[in-house]
Design a protein around this nucleic acid. Sequence first.
DNA 1: GTGAAAGCGCTAACAC
DNA 2: GTGTTAGCGCTTTCAC
Lengths: 334, 334
Amino acid sequence: MAKTVEEIANDLNLSVTTVRLVLNGNASKYRISQNTQKRINDYTAQHGYVLNYAARSLKLNKSDVLGLIIPRLSNPYFSLLAERLELTCREAGYQLITCCTYNDPQREMQLVSSLLSRNVDGLFIAPASVKTQEHHLKLATKPVIIIDRDFGHDDVSVVVSDNALAAEKLTTEMIRHDPSSFLFLAGSEKQPSISERIRGYRNAMASAGLKIKRGSLYKEGDDSTENGQKMMAHYLEKNDQLPSSLMTSSLPLLEGALNVISERYGYIPADLNIGTFDTHPMLRFLPNRIWTARQDEDAIVLSAFRAMIDAINGQSDTVHNIVPMQLIQYVANS
Amino acid sequence: MAKTVEEIANDLNLSVTTVRLVLNGNASKYRISQNTQKRINDYTAQHGYVLNYAARSLKLNKSDVLGLIIPRLSNPYFSLLAERLELTCREAGYQLITCCTYNDPQREMQLVSSLLSRNVDGLFIAPASVKTQEHHLKLATKPVIIIDRDFGHDDVSVVVSDNALAAEKLTTEMIRHDPSSFLFLAGSEKQPSISERIRGYRNAMASAGLKIKRGSLYKEGDDSTENGQKMMAHYLEKNDQLPSSLMTSSLPLLEGALNVISERYGYIPADLNIGTFDTHPMLRFLPNRIWTARQDEDAIVLSAFRAMIDAINGQSDTVHNIVPMQLIQYVANS
DNA sequence: GTGAAAGCGCTAACAC
DNA sequence: GTGTTAGCGCTTTCAC
């Protein structure tokens, strides 16, 4: 089935050059005769021809493949991001390969090596730590664009959301609605977008003249459902009742927290105010008042992809792009 | 940076064979001298070596890459499936490339060609229609495993859930709880897993001696949020009130329907019984009584992957695997 | 308008 | 224990 250029040339008594010229659409440019063109087209119509990218890639030392390395696809923010990025890449003739680290630095490094040896033309990475990021930058012979978390290196291109500002606005809105008691469950501060969100939270509380009570700000572990469960369970051990406002630094953490709450109470108390980041279609169906700071996936994808293309083309001034988030409120007027 | 085997061999005054033997861990097998091994290992430790997969793939006519073609990643069922499949593939030494069709048959066919020319060793596909499936099978020179939808060809391996049975059980449970009025929003019957679900629904209604009222069973369009909105809006135009039980054939349809309901009423009436397929962590937090027939992603992935490996190894008896679903109920005891 | 040939980096078969 | 070599399918340069 899969004929090669040479086979076609032999079968048709032509040279590979001639065949390639028409296969690549340069027939008219090099004035290949109509007859020859027709013979070739007829042949491929009948026998089919698929370009062998391995050979092309070997010769040209580029693969038209880009890699995306993220924590998990089951985080709706990342699955949306992956979807959009794949589309954008495809439209520009690139194939995207998406891989998940499951928050495992070891796996993250393996993935980078693996994709590199697969000859990707560039990598988008949401790195687990400064250390892994440095590892990647040292290893990579191709452009790397860091997304989602800014570890403050300026020798690499970074695209992130304006986490601190968004967190501040989010918190301010929630305080305005009900300042009585807050609980903020966050992942580890070592993850810069988290620490930024915590910073924004602190700013807002300070501006409002509110103290952050002991045991009302958790910042440990990763961005997983399990960790959300753990932190919420711990809070409920120490406290008799729920806070009036619950904030989480990510959707998985919120899921975990709500898991524990709904198990404890049998349902989610509708008067619990909820604040979080990113969104999922289901979120707005909760009876609660919900604020969420939504990252602009489209803008992030666009910015990151442009940075990538520029880097591939050698305009490798590193880019530091901070994309504004949007504050959304869901209210059920029951 | 990226040294080739030949460069290493030259620099060390060895032959490529010798270098390869130790690089591939066959040193002891061929009794390469300790000294030579050390020299090579030291060299690569210092200069690094990354296998060039393009060259390997060209030579061996295999890439250790598998392709997954699905409608969308933003459907939580598929993002979970993709996550699991990627893990399984990686553990077996395969790289997975996941692509989305956005329910566009044209794009689906392009994707197949594109992945084929990237020399994937096999394809997992959830095809849009019989036609596209036939197209793929004709084109593909590598194994194809069909997932999620069974168009009834027995010359291809298929792994699907037991949609009809699960739908029947689901409906029966919902009838038992409240038989008063049903609305079932489904995608197009041309999609076999949907038609199976409708069949199960019909069976259950018949067994319970219930008639399916005119305008209470929608089966048109695709499996998208937008389509769910459209169908629900249409229903509310024709009917003054909500049904007592709402079923949808997929999560995106449910999201769409709930969108319309929450816009119309300002909230989701808690006494609306909901039945659907697949699940999302957020689902259980709705105040409603919810039944869902959950597909067993792990079992599906395992079965599909095994079928793939068998096919790659030439044991190409086609497999027809039907994986049982699990019925889950979420109840808020408010 | 068309053709010939080198070479990308790897593997496998065969030498010695 | 180690070395030589052909060739996978493509692109590019040069030739006629």
